[in-house]
Each structure stands twice: as structure tokens, then as C-alpha cells.
Simulated assay, not measured.
Amino acid sequence: MKKWLTISTLCAVFLIGGCNTANDQQEPEEEVNGEETEEDPSTEQTPEDDDAEQEGENEGVENNEDFLAVEDEFTKEFLVSTDVEPGFHQMRGKLDGFEMLIPENGIISDLLHDIENDAVETLIYTFNNHSEKKLYDVKLMYYRKYPEEVKQNYLNVFKDEVGFDGEYKYVEANGLEIYYGSFEDEDKYGPYLRYFGYLFSIDDNQSISFSFAAMCQGGEECSLSLEEEAGLAEKLMYSIRLLDQ
């Protein structure tokens, strides 16, 4: 698995693990040194307290997946429209070069975002599927202007980056030339799926690479289907629009 994927996966695990850790710390201790502790009558919960606590827990569960993107301070800076369709927001890169969908629980870390010379923007966002114990990474690299003569070099280097030795498929859509592919593999972290594409503007020299990976969360057993995950990957890739510069 490539270095960027490992780093972003760790970020995703950290985000999830933080929530789990917080929940673990809220569990009351039944015994101290093998002896039962006595409850302070002043802190005994009433039925009303139990109801309020249960309501708060339910809200936390709902917010965990539904509102992460709009609650994260850095991610909010990229959102241009929320709830554009169920489960997705619309985001725009900082160079105003592209827009695309982002899942409503997608998180963009400031550690995984970079702009070089006001011309190249790299962005990685992560999200998860708690019920199926899956983690996802999406990496984008946007070029405001690329030299036409090195287009094939870009495609060759991209193959090496994603670890693909097959042939690209090709399609034109949304004013873009799209070279794409997919595969499934396994490494020391477990099985993973990769779907990727290099998108070139037909009208000018803008381009953007897109790489999508799905993996099991924290070593948990889960089922990964290339066909199923490719549906989500394609939805995100085909939502990309390169904006006029």
C-alpha cells in the first residue's frame, strides 16, 4: 500500500478510535482493587437523568455519520453546498480549479492538503461505513496547467503510483478525457480495493488524478466487493468538474 494511503488510513483510524476511546472512558468502574465501590447518593441518577442521557447518546450516534463534514472546521472551508443529494455535499478545491461530491461524513485533514506554487493542489479525504466496518480514502491531485507533451508521462507515472500494470480504459464525459482502471489486492494490512482515474480537460490544459481505496477498518473482518465499491468510486469520479480558469 502506498505511503499516502497508509498515512491517511491512520488519520481515519485515529478519528474513529478517538470516538471509541471517549466512549470507553465513560464506562463506570464496578470494582476498585477487587472491592465494590459505594455510590454517592448525591450522584444517583433519576429516571429523568437516564432519559436525558439516552437521548444524548442517540443524538451522538446519528451525528457520527451524518454531520462530521459540516462540523469539522477545516473540511467546512471546502464545502460550497450541503445536502446536494442524500448523503453527499459539494466541495471545491482551494485553487478553485475543481468541484466534486464528498460524502457527508468525509473529513479533509489539513495535514493531507497541500498547494504548490499556486498551481498544483493535493488533497486527501477519508470517510467510513461504520455498519460494514470499512474505511475509504480518496486522493486528488489537481494541475492548473500541464504541458501537453508530457501527458503520457503523467499517465505512466500515475500507474506506478497506484501499483497498476494493466491497460487504462478510456471514456469521455463532462468535458473530460478519462483514463481509468481498478483492481483488488492484499498487503500486510489486509485486503483492499483500488479504483483510479486520470482526468484531462478537453478544452484546456487542466488535469486531475483521482484515486479511491476501500479497506477493512482496523483489521476487522468485512466483505469487500470490487463491483459494489466501484459503484461508489465511479459516482465520486464522475462528479468531478474542472472549472474555468
Results as ranks from 00 to 15, higher is better:
Q26M: 14
D24P: 00
P28N: 10
D49M: 12
C11S: 02
E27S: 11
A22V: 05
E36H: 14
N20T: 05
E48I: 07
A12K: 00
T37L: 15
A22C: 05
Q54V: 01
E35P: 05
A52G: 01
S42T: 08
G34L: 09
T46E: 13
N20I: 08
D49N: 15
S8E: 04
I16S: 03
E36Y: 14
V13H: 02
F14R: 00
L10V: 04
S8W: 02
P47E: 13
P28W: 09
P47Y: 07
Q45D: 10
E53C: 02
P47A: 10
G34T: 08
Q25S: 07
S42H: 07
V13N: 02
E27D: 13
L10H: 05
E38W: 06
S42Y: 08
T37S: 11
T43G: 05
E44F: 03
E48T: 08
E35F: 15
N33C: 12
I16D: 03
T43V: 07
Q26D: 12
E44K: 11
S8R: 02
E36K: 15
V13R: 02
G18F: 03
L10E: 08
G18R: 01
I7Q: 05
G34P: 11
I7L: 06
E31P: 04
L15C: 01
F14A: 01
Q45S: 13
T21M: 07
E31Q: 14
G17L: 04
D51E: 13
E38K: 12
V32D: 13
N23K: 12
V32F: 13
N23A: 12
D40N: 15
E29Y: 11
L15S: 02
Q25M: 14
E48K: 09
Q54P: 00
G17H: 00
T46P: 11
E29T: 14
D24E: 12
T46H: 10
Q45I: 11
Q45M: 12
E35H: 15
Q54Y: 03
I7M: 03
D49E: 15
G17S: 04
I7S: 05
E35C: 10
E31Y: 15
D24I: 10
T46R: 09
E36C: 08
G34K: 09
A52F: 08
E36V: 14
F14V: 00
D49S: 11
T9Y: 03
L10G: 10
N33E: 15
T37I: 15
T37G: 10
Q45P: 03
D24T: 11
C11L: 01
N23Q: 07
D40K: 08
G34N: 09
N20G: 04
L15G: 02
P41D: 06
E30I: 13
A12P: 00
C11A: 01
T46D: 12
V32E: 15
V13P: 00
P47S: 12
N20M: 06
E35D: 15
Q45R: 13
T9Q: 09
Q26L: 14
I7R: 05
T9D: 06
D24C: 07
G18I: 00
N33L: 14
Q45L: 15
S42N: 08
Q45E: 14
E30T: 12
Q45A: 11
A12F: 01
T43E: 11
D51R: 10
N23P: 00
C19Q: 08
G34I: 09
P28S: 12
N23Y: 06
E38M: 06
Q54C: 02
V13G: 01
V32S: 12
I7Y: 02
Q54L: 05
C11W: 01
D50Y: 09
E35G: 13
E39K: 12
I7V: 07
P41Q: 05
I7H: 04
